[in-house]
Computed example of a mutant assay.
Amino acid sequence: MAILELTKAEKEKILVDIARLAAAAGEGAQRICGGPSNIKSVILTGEDIANIRDAILPLCGDDGRLNMYMYGDWKGLDEVIKNDEPMAILVMGTDATRSHLGWNCGACGFATCGEFNKHAREVREGPTRGRGTAQGGPCCMWLLQDFGIAVVTAAAAVYEMGVPTRIHTSFGSMAVACGYLDGCMQALGISVGPWRLGTWDEWYNRPTMKGTFSLEDIYGDLWRCFPTHFAGFNGRGRPLTKTDPAWQAKGIYCAHVYDEEYENKRKAAGAKFAEVTAQIRQKVQERRQQGGK
């Protein structure tokens, strides 16, 4: 009997096969709405993972401070690519902006599915095309729940095969922006690997981020993102803000302000992101026209 040693290519093929099985599990999962599946799946490896990495960075800024959380995903992918490690990304997408149900449940905010579809079509055809920061809308809540069921089922399938995994909003959004899932308004990415010891820490504790930001950076970012977690009792309508252990004596309150410096950085990042993703979309389209996978 032959003794087989797993090469990088063989490891990558195994991860791709696991991603295929996970896609089958996700697309075949039990759904609330029934009917044909409107979920699309793509598996990214090699150059295409590098494209996702390159698309993420402009939104974070070179130092990561524009989006410290997405920067963690960028840095994780960057380490994988630099170390030439086997990995796959399963991206699943859908379009929950078109409802065929006729249930008229009102969960979307409209009295009937017909009213929702009319509004959603106007948004899709408008200047924003319904794209938010990460996902698109407005959405039928039932179709969106079906999509969530499919994605978590796929991620669970990867986990059951003993491979580290996590669901990433960033990977899904970048895949749509780069042209891998045209026709999808919502998308989520599922990391399959990388193939290495201690990968659980890579996507959860993220040791690659150690030393990137100071404690003050992290605390300040959390405070800005989740002010209600740091608010005192709001019985008088203006709760004190818990900036540090002595918060009760300091009398610091939240306020809405226009941050011109941050807005200028954010707009410049958006312009750079549009430039980078347009270049990637062009490459992806050219490969498809040439019959490349």
Rank of each mutant, 00 (worst) to 15 (best):
Y180A: 04
G172Y: 05
A157E: 04
M141N: 10
L181I: 06
C178I: 06
L143M: 08
G130L: 12
Q145L: 12
Q145E: 12
G172M: 05
A155E: 15
A175D: 13
E216K: 12
Y219L: 15
F171V: 06
S191T: 10
G193Y: 03
L215E: 14
F171I: 05
T153V: 07
A154C: 05
R206G: 02
T153H: 07
A134I: 13
L143T: 05
S173C: 10
F213E: 07
S214A: 10
S191N: 06
W195K: 05
F230K: 00
G179C: 01
L222K: 13
G198E: 03
A150K: 03
M185G: 15
G198R: 00
C139Q: 12
D217Y: 05
V192M: 02
F226D: 14
I167T: 07
H229M: 14
S214D: 11
K210I: 02
K210A: 09
G193L: 03
A134S: 14
A231G: 13
W200D: 14
P138F: 00
V151H: 06
G193D: 12
R196M: 13
W195C: 06
A154G: 07
E160S: 14
H168S: 15
G189A: 02
S191A: 09
Y159K: 14
M185K: 05
A154R: 01
P194C: 02
L181A: 11
W203N: 00
G137N: 04
F230L: 08
